[in-house]
Structure formats: structure tokens, C-alpha cells
Design a protein around this nucleic acid. Structure first.
Lengths: 204, 204
DNA sequence: TCCTTTTTATAGTGATCGCTATAGAACTGG
DNA sequence: CCAGTTCTATAGCGATCACTATAAAAAGGA
């Protein structure tokens, strides 16, 4: 469907993936409302009509950038939580990967989804609901991870998977805030290690 | 200095504390950039010239609102960390108070300082530095708390006070994000209880 | 009363916001 | 070549942004 036969009309003169990558950086750094069309125009090299023809609106472009973000940046993150074996080491890898991602030089600090959670009025429009959905997805992945760990016998069966999911979700979001505040990868890794003490092995 | 002898000139027709309370709610809910002067004008009942004469600029009003916030809303929070006896129960009270504050009905969700951390470009202007300073203050209070706890023998002396401070700071900021996302006081309290497992009593 | 000082209220400043009308450029199908 | 279609480029739309010039109103000191 991508490079299939082109219909009539002038072909577009830009690479959609490249545009999404650059627009994502702008939204990531400045947030949805903080990113102006002038910034997006300068970063992507596109003119307003091209943007609006390709993505419909600023919100549409933002939504496409969210997809791009989870598909590329958040790829390893979700993969770490989706593996079959769910143990403490896997969760550690998930947290330490976040510590690295959040402080990656040359990219905006922190997590794009967590950052968006705070700047958008809750439950207002479609943009807010789009990011809320992605956060719920990660929360569900975490809860499933802990359920699998309990089934595998690596996590105390008395623990509450949903409470643990919410806890580690909060830790990651807190790490994102601190990354934005200038915390180093080492400092965030230390936070991750402390947080892992909440993983209680089954008794006996 | 407050109700002292008034000099010449027309007396101001508004209560400064009342204005700060209402402006704080607007900044708290919408963030610094998201709060427009039109909103602030509607919430406070003041006209733009009155605002600018009393506070200098939008940034000046925001700074005054930050002071108002920590003096009123964050009062109990800092007080809990400043008590002489530093034990696990005191830290639990600090976290549970945050869980309650962040979900207080009739107020914007989450923490005003943490929320501002994500919407402002890091280390940009005076506004960003103002909120960064307040976050560092809380981080220092936490580290001192853990040092006192080690001195009192309620916390493992092998623990790193600064790492613990950063960790619990991250937890609180994560709770703030989730409160903004619609988490209930009970859910945040559960997060707090899980987080407290990182408090390791001294061996023996 | 009149002058000075301070705070109000009205109205509007230039700049920027997201977005679009219009027209020209670049392609396919005939 | 000529339609038909789709994208690009320039320019500008109304609305809103933070902010302010101007002047009237309300106080004290003379």
C-alpha cells in the first residue's frame, strides 16, 4: 500500500517518516500546545497546506507522532514487558532501559507520553484521550507482567498486580519528570534500583 | 507592614490573598503557558492594568502564586519532613498526605510544582528556574530527613540518603501525574504503601 | 478647594496562534 | 497535446496572546 501504483496528481515531495521523526522531536520537547505550527514548519520543512493535507490538523499530526513515538522510541520498552518469562530481572531491564531512554543525548528529556499527561487538561478533547489510552496500555502491560510472574512463581502471590503496576508506572513517570529536570542516567538508574525493592519474592 | 498607615492615592479595591488564591487555581489547573490573562482576569475579577501594577507581569503573578501555593497547600507537606524525629511513620504520613492533597476535590489534581516541571522548557527563563528551585528544596528536605533517620537509628546506615531522596521524589511526582490522570486517593495511597518498602530498617 | 499620588476602567497595541483561500506546479490518463 | 487530479507555495484570515497608553476615579496633604 506504500509504494503501490500511484494515482494521478502531483507526487508529494517529502518523506513521511522523516517528517514524523522531526515533528515528534518538536512535540516531545515543547508539548502539544507549546509546539507551534511555525516550529513544526521549520523542523519539517513543510508548508502549512502540506501539513494539513497530509494530517488534517495539528491534532492529527500529533496523533501520528504519538504512533511514531511508541513504534520507534517506546518499542524496546513495551517489548521488555511482553516477554513470556516475567521475573525481577526483566522488570529491572525495563526500568533501566527507561533511565537510558529518558536521558538519551540529542533527544528531548523524559517520556513524551508522561510529559503530555501533565500539560493537557484531563479528559478534555481527543488529544488528551489519545495519550490517556497509551498510558492505560502501559499500565495494563505492567499488570499482566506481574500476573505472569505470580503464575511463574517469581513474585509473591499475595501482592496486588494492579497496585504494583500503578506503583511502577508512577516510578517511571517520576523518572521522566526528573529526567526533564536534568537528572543523569546514573541518578535515574539508582532510582530504578531502589524501586525494585518493592518486588517481593514468594515466601519459602 | 500590612495595615499600616496608608499613603496618598486611591486604595486598592481587592484582597490580595483572595486574588492569589484564585489565580493559583488557574495556574495549577492549566499551567503557566496554558493560563491566559483572560482566564486570570475572569477568575480574579481584576483588570489587566491592576494585575500588572500589582505583580509586574504574568511571570510575576505566577511567582507570587508559587509562594502562595507552598505557603498554603504545601504547608503540611514540608512540615511533615521538617520534624525532628525522622522515622518510617513520618515518611508514610508525608506520602499519604500527598495522596490526599493530589486528589482533593474542588482543586486541580496533582502537585502544582511537579506539573509545572513538565510544561516548562528546562532551564529556560526565570519562571522555569523558580519552580526548579522549589523542587530542589523538597529534594533537600527529603535527604536531610533520611540523614536524621540514620542518625536516629531508624534507617539502615548503608542506605544512600540522596538516592532515597531522589527515589521518593520521583514517587511523589509520579503520584502527581497519576492524580492528574484521574487516579483516586485510595489508588495513590496504595502506591505510597508499596513505595515504603524501600525504607529498610537497620540490621540487627 | 486644589494638587499629588495611586488604583481603577476602557480600549487597543503589535505579535503570534491555528488554519485556509487561492493559484500555480507536477504528475497520470486520454 | 489536453483535461483531471493532487500537491505545493504565497499570502492572509479571524481570533487570541501578553501587555499598555490614556484617562477617569478615589484617596491624603496643603
Amino acid at each position: 500500500m506504500k509504494s503501490g501504483k500511484r494515482g494521478p496528481g502531483r507526487p508529494r515531495s517529502f518523506d513521511q517518516e522523516r517528517v514524523l521523526e522531526q515533528a515528534t522531536q518538536v512535540f516531545w520537547a515543547h508539548g502539544y500546545e507549546g509546539a507551534s505550527l511555525t516550529m513544526l514548519q521549520a523542523a519539517t520543512g513543510l508548508n502549512p497546506p502540506s501539513i494539513y493535507h497530509a494530517f488534517g490538523s495539528k491534532a492529527g499530526l500529533y496523533s501520528a507522532c504519538l504512533d511514531h513515538y511508541v513504534a520507534h522510541v517506546g518499542h524496546h520498552t513495551n517489548a521488555a514487558l511482553s516477554r513470556e518469562v516475567a521475573d525481577r530481572a526483566g522488570l529491572a531491564e525495563f526500568l533501566l532501559d527507561a533511565a537510558r531512554q529518558f536521558t538519551d543525548a540529542g533527544r528531548p528529556g523524559g517520556c513524551m507520553i508522561s510529559t503530555a499527561a501533565l500539560e493537557l487538561p484531563p479528559q478534555s478533547d481527543s488529544v488528551a484521550r489519545a495519550v490517556a489510552t497509551r498510558r492505560d496500555t502501559t499500565l495494563g502491560l505492567l499488570a499482566d507482567y506481574f500476573r505472569r510472574a505470580q503464575a511463574a512463581g517469581t513474585l509473591d502471590p499475595a501482592a496486588d498486580p494492579r497496585a504494583l503496576a500503578r506503583y511502577f508506572g508512577a516510578v517511571v513517570q517520576g523518572m521522566s519528570v526528573q529526567a526533564r529536570d536534568g537528572a543523569t542516567a546514573g541518578e535515574l538508574a539508582a532510582v530504578a534500583h531502589v524501586a525494585l525493592t518493592a518486588w517481593q519474592a514468594p515466601p519459602g
